[in-house]
């Protein structure tokens, strides 16, 4: 029994150690800005299409599914509010994070994993660079700035997708009412939650991707394993954290 939990606990301890070093590194030189911009491009621009598509259709699907229930209560005018709140608080941050986990956490794990098994990470340390500063920190900074921006875009196109279904398609409510309703319903609390979540997710996504990459062993096979592990662990963290953060905000 003790042996069974020893592994995960040791892994978590290693992860916290890396997280600590990366976080402290944020405030220290050197900064490898070209690497930061490359990563920003990879995450922000690279993940844009898939994030927009997911955002659009999750908004559309929500309006579609809600329309029946709202018709029963004769409350179809509220559609804008429901779509907006669910997207901004929950669906936008979570779906965007899951997409970025699939695209970028896995990318980081496989890239750093290949570097690990070909001894490029050892070479970095041997030749005077700290891999945490050179590899982990740029990915952390880039994800932490790009994921909130991606989430905002996903929220917008999601509300737009909801409008397409609600107004032109099903005619549940008037255009003006939909936009008014969705805009007004958002409170300060929702916006905070909707921006805090992607920021927290970004830290976890990038660190998990880098962590599994840097601890890859066992050649090319190990790289595949690290990639899978990174995506699974990052995704599970996202859904657990969204609940925990949501819980804090609900009780506030």
């Amino acid at each position: 029994m003790l042996d069974l939990i020893k592994g995960p606990i040791l892994t978590f301890q290693e992860f916290v150690l890396l997280a600590g070093r990366a976080t402290r590194g944020i405030f220290r030189k050197p900064y490898y800005w070209p690497d930061v911009f490359t990563q920003m491009d990879l995450i922000g621009i690279g993940s844009l299409p898939v994030v927009l598509l997911t955002g659009f259709f999750s908004g559309a699907v929500m309006a579609l599914q809600m329309s029946r229930a709202l018709q029963t209560y004769g409350a179809t005018s509220q559609i804008g509010q429901i779509v907006a709140i669910t997207l901004v608080r929950e669906m936008g941050p979570v779906l965007t994070a899951l997409m970025v986990a699939g695209r970028n956490s896995s990318g980081m794990a496989s890239e750093l994993g290949s570097m690990k098994v070909t001894e490029q990470i050892d070479a970095m340390r041997a030749l005077g660079t700290d891999p945490v500063m050179k590899l982990v920190k740029p990915r952390l900074i880039a994800t932490a700035t790009m994921l909130p921006l991606l989430t905002i875009l996903a929220d917008f196109v999601g509300i737009f997708g909801g409008w397409i279904v609600a107004c032109p398609l099903l005619g549940l409510t008037s255009d003006a009412q939909y936009w008014n309703n969705s805009w007004r319903s958002l409170e300060y609390n929702d916006i905070t939650q909707g921006l805090l979540k992607p920021f927290v997710f970004a830290i976890v996504l990038s660190l998990v991707g880098c962590f599994y990459g840097m601890k890859t062993t066992g050649g090319t096979q190990g790289v595949g394993l690290a990639t899978t592990q990174a995506v699974v662990v990052a995704s599970v963290w996202v859904v657990v954290l969204t609940f925990l953060i949501g819980r804090i905000f609900v009780s506030m």
């Binding site: 098994v117 070909t118 001894e119 490029q120 050892d122 070479a123 340390r125 041997a126 030749l127 005077g128």
Partner: peptide, 13 residues
């Protein structure tokens, strides 16, 4: 390490 040179088995290029 600045006073040492190393060639890694897997190259490390």
């Amino acid at each position: 390490r600045a006073r040492m040179g190393v060639l890694f088995q897997e190259g490390g290029l």
